[in-house]
């Protein structure tokens, strides 16, 4: 016997979680963009989309974040730290790729220096993921050895029933069990079976691609120039990516006081590796695109034993010139 959460109880659940002090967040279709956003009612959630335009990353690692305020005085510098406002959150209706993205980035943010901004939000968030019963042409989780029902990064996995009636509940972590204990009165025992997950065709052989990338001879391959000729060097792919995590630290203010901020940065930009001298070790767009692919499928797994891609497909879906990880790895598979 498993438990079921029926869709018509979602409003009650959201109300219950909110009265228990949780901020409820989920996929919301705005006027011109979809994203994970705070909701007040269950009916505000748009659970039918393949996945939101914007990834879950930004709820843990916002595009700009104040770190400290500084004031320079005659003989001293005063500083005051900013910490993220504490808020217990439940993210209802994450997609498995987005939830996986968080788990992929955990070792990065906790490796040598423990990023308190990231981990405070991670510790304060319960991730309730809904398994996918539909996909689009750009989804590629299965090519990354993940699946439409991956549980990586997830506290509770929901498997949809037919006719949007609700979900089978699989509680995976203590944090998930605690959050669902709050709404246990709305869960029903049942022996129903869930809908099958969507078939997402494999688009390339990941192992073969990784082997090619790991071969030092291919670092200077002509392939990089060819595949990236049309790259225009924007950061659309990196900023929508659920795992890209690079940031820059900037002081904003005048000579005497200001705020130190942590802002998203992208390896697509020429400025990313520009030295103070003016020399740029990645002086061409092909070198920058190579870096993005190498980082995700060679350097990152070399350090953390996991690829830095969860197969959401946003990079390809949103690219102004129709590039992306899928095409690049497909082309590498053919080499």
């Amino acid at each position: 016997m498993t438990r079921i959460l029926f869709s018509d109880k979602l409003d009650n659940c959201v109300a219950k979680w909110r009265s228990a002090g949780l901020t409820v967040i989920g996929p919301v279709q705005g006027e011109s963009l979809s994203s994970y956003a705070t909701v007040e009612k269950g009916t505000d959630l748009h659970l039918g989309m393949v996945l939101p335009d914007r990834s879950l990353k930004e709820l843990f690692f916002p595009q700009t974040e104040p770190m400290l305020r500084y004031t320079i005085k005659k003989n001293e510098i005063e500083t005051a730290d900013f910490t993220p406002p504490s808020a217990q959150r439940i993210i209802f209706g994450a997609r498995p790729c987005d939830a996986s993205g968080l788990a992929i980035d955990d070792p990065l943010f906790g490796w040598d220096y423990k990023d308190e901004y990231w981990f405070q939000r991670r510790n304060e968030s319960v991730i309730v993921t809904i398994a996918c019963t539909k996909a689009d042409d750009f989804c590629l989780c299965t090519s990354l050895k993940l699946a439409p029902d991956s549980t990586k990064g997830t506290d509770v996995l929901l498997r949809p029933l037919d006719k949007n009636r609700g979900w089978l509940v699989e509680e995976l972590t203590d944090r998930g069990r605690e959050a669902f204990a709050i709404i246990s009165e709305y869960l029903q025992e049942s022996s129903e079976t869930a809908l099958p997950t969507v078939e997402v065709p494999e688009k390339f052989n990941l192992d073969a691609c990784v082997a090619w990338l790991q071969n030092p001879e291919n670092f200077d391959s002509k392939f990089w120039k060819e595949i990236s000729m049309r790259c225009i060097g924007c950061a659309s792919c990196t900023y929508l990516c659920p795992t890209c995590h690079c940031f820059d630290i900037q002081d904003e203010g005048d000579t005497y006081s200001g705020i130190r901020r942590k802002n998203w940065d992208s390896c697509s930009f020429a400025l990313f590796t520009m030295h103070t001298s003016g020399h740029n070790p990645r002086s061409t767009q092909s070198a920058r695109w190579r870096q993005r692919i190498m980082h995700k499928f060679n350097y990152f797994p070399g350090k953390f034993s996991v690829n830095s891609c969860s197969g959401c497909g946003r990079c390809s879906r949103q690219c102004p010139v129709d590039m992306g990880i899928t095409e690049t790895l497909q082309e590498i598979s053919k080499l």
Binding site: I232, T238, S266, L271, P320
Partner: peptide, 28 residues
């Protein structure tokens, strides 16, 4: 909603500056 990905700039044929004003960081 802007995330400063500069896709608008990079996609524009007129944005050919070798160093855009927003990338001029000495000073920023």
């Amino acid at each position: 909603r802007c995330i400063k990905c500069y896709a608008c700039r990079q996609a524009c044929p007129m944005c050919y500056c070798r160093r855009c004003i927003v990338d001029s960081n000495q000073p920023q």
